[in-house]
């Protein structure tokens, strides 16, 4: 078995609040696995049960073959965690924090390199309290990675990061995977999940409502894709014969074809066949965001979360 994380029928309640109802998935070694879902869906709870920080009520959990409930101390030496809610002492300096957390691990690690990678070298002597929100976040992520863990849990890693830092963070996460580590990423950024994750699970009301590679989910749940182009031609009824096409609409010279499947390729072929080669032929591919909204977006804020 190459599954590094196995989670079957996880359930966790707080009093009468059901935080996680029934969650199952497995993560393979070297995968970047995304957990998406609305606020209060149970993502943090799921991840913290895997880290052994919270005790599950029921379910089968294994991380690196260890049971987080009974072998948490052993497990936590082999994983790295960036928690959604945690902090460092106000007056600890950046280098001191990295130096200290590097000492918590079993192996000798190069925390200086980690500090540089995460853009903290200039802030090395700044105290935690004096860092900006994004800098703190980068430090907390760096601390999760400083011991070169085999499995990394990142709970909203890029929240508060500027676009440049976000891209750097993505590259660093990919580099971690190249090293052979497995990454579990909780995020609210759909572009991040699409760019980074091999597979994602969309969690809603404590249950997994969709699981798969981003492109698979898009194909399955996102609804029709759209191809647009400009053409002077008026009679385009033959486009309806192209497999997958559902509708063709005109708006002036601009034409929009909606449908499913490999729409762009088939429409392009048909156009060329009819002697039309528009310069602005464009594919408006649905994104993970559409999938997310289709699966979870029905609730308005007033309806609130699960009662």
């Amino acid at each position: 078995m190459s599954a590094v994380i196995q989670i079957e029928h996880l359930r966790k309640t707080y009093g009468r609040t059901v935080a996680v109802d029934d969650v199952s998935f497995a993560v393979e070694r070297g995968e970047i696995f995304g957990l998406l879902g609305p606020n209060g869906a149970g993502k943090t709870t799921t991840v913290e049960c895997l880290q052994g920080l919270r005790a599950a009520d029921a379910g089968y959990l294994r991380v690196l073959g260890l049971d987080p409930r009974t072998q948490a101390a052993e497990l936590r030496l082999r994983i790295g965690c960036q928690l959604q809610e945690s902090a460092l002492p106000d007056r600890i300096k950046v280098w001191e924090a990295l130096d200290l957390f590097a000492a918590f691990g079993r192996k000798q690690t190069d925390w200086l390199r980690c500090m540089e990678q995460w853009g903290l070298a200039q802030k090395s002597k700044a105290t935690f309290a004096s860092l900006s929100g994004g800098q703190r976040q980068r430090l907390l992520v760096a601390l999760a990675l400083v011991n070169e863990p085999e499995v990394v849990f990142l709970d909203e890693m890029t929240t508060g990061l500027d676009p440049g830092s976000r891209r750097v963070a993505w590259d660093l996460i990919r580099a971690i995977r190249e090293r052979g580590a497995t990454v579990v990423l909780v995020t609210h950024f759909m572009d991040e999940a699409e760019a980074l994750c091999d597979r994602v699970a969309i969690v809603d009301e404590g249950r997994v409502s969709a699981l798969g590679a981003p492109w698979q989910l898009i194909e399955r749940y996102a609804g029709p894709g759209r191809v647009t182009f400009s053409a002077a031609e008026h009679d385009l009824t033959w486009l309806h014969a192209v497999p997958g096409v559902e509708s063709v609409t005109h708006s002036g010279l601009r034409i929009s074809v909606e449908g499913t499947g490999p729409l762009l390729a088939l429409v392009a072929a048909a156009l060329v066949e009819h002697g039309i080669a528009p310069l602005d032929l464009a594919n408006q591919r649905p994104t993970l965001e559409e999938v997310f909204l289709a699966l979870t977006g029905r609730r308005t804020l007033e309806e609130g979360e699960t009662p």
Binding site: L53, A72, R76, C81, S86, F104, L140
Partner: peptide
């Protein structure tokens, strides 16, 4: 403030 949580997550006894 969650500092202890952070320590716990790193298996600090």
């Amino acid at each position: 403030r969650g500092v202890l949580r952070r320590f716990k997550a790193s298996s600090v006894p």
